[in-house]
């Protein structure tokens, strides 16, 4: 038994072929999209950030202006304090289409899922020496083993 859907020798039109292709793809593929919103912590007031001055601002005023930091990391004889936040929306679209025995997969992600932040550096007297802004992952110094307490020149000497 044979089954013919068109006249012998005739080819289906372009519209029919496109419809057939789209129909096939939609039936056998998987399209999935996500629209996400992330809010992690909160950005400090810019007026508070702008009020911080290297060489002038001490730890007390920095904590008063910005509140508790995310991280405190020892840096040399001083330290760095980091504040971070994220407030973003992003798209994530994934299309999976079987191609023969294999599976084709396409993914589009419009994401800026990085925490922005401010890092303040303090010297051994806990006076601010510099400020950096940007993505926190790029700014935060790597944690190291704590220094030897004998290196702490600002502290009392051990008898």
């Amino acid at each position: 038994m044979t089954c013919r859907s068109s006249k012998a020798g005739a080819r289906p039109g372009l519209t029919a072929r496109v419809a057939l292709l789209l129909g096939s793809v939609s039936l056998v593929s998987c399209v999935d999209g996500d629209y996400n919103k992330f809010r992690i912590y909160q950005e400090p007031l810019m007026e508070a950030v702008d009020s911080l001055k290297p060489g002038v601002t001490d730890l007390e005023s920095a904590l008063e202006q910005l509140g508790a930091p995310l991280f405190v990391i020892e840096v040399g004889l001083g330290m760095s304090l980091a504040w971070g936040w994220q407030n973003t929306t992003d798209w994530n679209i994934e299309v999976s289409v079987p191609v023969g025995d294999a599976a084709g997969n396409f993914q589009y992600a419009d994401t800026s899922a990085q925490i922005q932040g401010i890092v303040l550096f303090f010297d051994e007297s806990w006076t601010m020496t510099s400020m950096q802004k940007g993505f926190l992952a790029d700014l935060v110094p790597k944690r190291q083993r704590p220094r030897d307490v004998d290196d702490d020149l600002s502290g009392p000497t051990v008898p």
Partner: peptide, 18 residues
């Protein structure tokens, strides 16, 4: 079916004592 909407909000109480 084809679209997911998701919102995540993370907030904290944080205190540093020196």
């Amino acid at each position: 079916v084809l679209l997911g909407l998701r919102g995540v909000d993370t907030q904290a109480d944080r205190v540093w004592v020196f």
